[in-house]
Design a protein around this nucleic acid. Structure first.
Length: 204
DNA sequence: CTACGGATTTTCT
DNA sequence: GAAAATCCGTAGT
């Protein structure tokens, strides 16, 4: 029940990305509550990171929220069709963020199944169950997150993060996905995930 | 199981 | 005008 504090996000995105693993991402809306466990993240390290939207200090309308305070959502549209959810990290003026790439459904699973496939969870095939939330675009569909949720306070009461249970897990560091254009940055091990978790989008 | 191509439209150049 | 932090269906192993 404890909401993660804003101070938590006021650090380099690499640290925040690692430590977000195992915490709960919650979306409360329209009278329902969707709870999921964060199992895969990527760090985007701002002006020095060729894969980041804020590389070189680019400051457009889209990325403006990244330059604000930590602990706010950054949601953008990718490939003209899919939404991706990030959380802004580091202090005001330093445009870091953490992409949420995979979550494990915890509560509101039938609603998530409906959002994704228009079916009840127990009507899904095996691969549809895994496909519910094992990717950045997929989890946004399941959790009903789109660009209308850009700039929300994740220390607030609609879209927020709470402390995890104390289950132990191993963390794997890996290359980020889908950034082959980013020259040397493509090889940085800035993706983190919970070892052996089913809802990780891409395993090594 | 892996590999490939098409979908679709905002965003920035 | 081109590219994009992705997903899905189809075809082949």
């Amino acid at each position: 029940m404890n909401i993660v504090s804003r101070e938590f996000y006021n650090r380099d995105s690499i640290i925040v990305a690692k430590e977000l693993l195992g915490k709960f991402l919650v979306h409360e809306s329209k009278g329902y509550k969707l709870v999921s466990r964060i199992v895969e993240t990527e760090a985007y390290m701002g002006v020095i990171d060729k894969a980041a939207h804020s590389y070189g200090g680019r400051r457009t309308k889209r990325v403006e929220v990244m330059y604000g305070k930590p602990g706010f959502s950054y949601v953008y549209l990718i490939y003209g069709m899919y939404n991706c959810l990030n959380i802004v990290a580091n202090q005001e003026g330093i445009p870091h963020c953490v992409l949420i790439r995979g979550v494990e459904p915890i509560e509101g699973i039938d609603i998530m199944a409906n959002n994704r496939y228009n079916k009840a969870y127990d009507q899904l095939t095996r691969s549809q169950k895994i496909g519910l939330t094992n990717g950045p675009g997929k989890l946004c569909m399941a959790l009903d997150i789109d660009r209308n949720h850009n700039g929300l306070d994740v220390c607030g009461d609609e879209l927020y993060v709470q402390e995890g249970d104390n289950e132990a897990f191993d963390v794997v560091s890996a290359k980020r996905i889908g950034i082959d254009y980013a020259e040397e940055a493509r090889d940085f091990l800035w993706r983190f995930y919970i070892k052996d978790n089913k809802y990780v989008s891409v395993k090594i």
